[in-house]
Design a protein around this nucleic acid. Structure first.
Lengths: 166, 166
DNA sequence: ATAAACTTTCAATTTTATTTGAAAGTTCGA
DNA sequence: TCGAACTTTCAAATAAAATTGAAAGTTTAT
């Protein structure tokens, strides 16, 4: 297997994996393509390589820029925009963690805060007490998870893994 | 807001959140309902409360059992099956982490191992060298993440949070 | 101001995921 | 062995998400 084949297999499979965990296939494939490409690519080149429509390519490129996983690059004397991936794995990881925090953790924390703030009743029957307990426990736990993600985002890669993993 | 209202809002919003992070709404709602219910519920009761068809309820109950997030409970002198959620938050968290590890991390690690094992070529041009680098770096990183999730699964809740969070 | 080069939008279409409910399957007591 | 009580399956219907591509919008050079 030469490295071109490796690149093709990686892009293909990364696309399938991506869709398995809730990232659409085009976005995952564009990211895979740019990860494995050293230099910046234009929208046209990306469309060609992955056989995507212009609209699809454009939209997913914008999404990847919102995740801070790829950057726009201007070439002197050329009006086209070129895109290049963030290639540092630790940086990629922190970007993914912070996006997941934003999309998965924060909304859940807000839900539980909202429920708590609207005053849980003081009903004393077992069912009511259970609900109150679960809301409180879940809320506390999610806040701890939030602190944990903050820690990961602030930590240095080497520090994190030295601390945790042998 | 009394606790019944809290329960209803929680179930409703947990369903929406769930769909935002790739868990289908029915599954998220069934889980929310059972989390907030102290005692076990039958399929019929779940169907009634959430307005789901029998097939949908059955399938998502089975999925939740595969995640080890709910358990079957038999009541003496009753042929129906009842279901009760795991109510301990830390246990829930470890189940979710291990499921995510299984679905998100392991397949990615297998992909990169497969690519590496099929022998990356020794081409010396910059593009080929870049591909080789990225495959190696990503592979190493994912293996470290795997160790990190193992650590989390083995750690005690209090230990983890004492270690990391203030 | 114009036109070429490029990017973005969005209604229509296609694809994928979820849900339904009736039929098939299973278990158990009499 | 039968049939009532219950669970599972799965093809069809529905709903949701992704994709297309042409039209609209923007930028820049002249």
């Amino acid at each position: 297997m030469n490295n071109q084949d490796a690149k093709i297999e990686f892009i293909h499979t990364w696309g399938i994996l991506g869709s398995q965990w809730g990232i659409n296939r085009s976005m995952a494939q564009i990211h895979a393509l740019l990860l494995m490409t050293k230099n910046a690519m234009s929208t046209e080149e990306i469309m060609g390589e992955l056989q995507l429509s212009r609209g699809n390519a454009n939209m997913n490129i914008r999404d990847l820029m919102n995740w801070n996983l790829i950057y726009k690059q201007i070439k002197a004397g050329d009006r086209k925009e070129y895109f290049i991936a963030e290639h540092d794995i630790w940086t990629i990881a922190t970007r993914v963690v912070s996006e997941r925090k934003r999309r998965e953790l924060i909304p859940a924390i807000e839900l539980l805060d909202r429920i708590k703030k609207d005053e849980l009743g003081g009903e004393k029957d077992a069912e009511s007490a259970h609900i109150k307990d679960m809301v409180n426990n879940l809320g506390d736990f999610l806040n701890k998870m939030d602190k944990l993600t903050e820690f990961m985002l602030k930590a240095e890669q080497s520090l994190l893994f030295k601390l945790i993993v042998k």
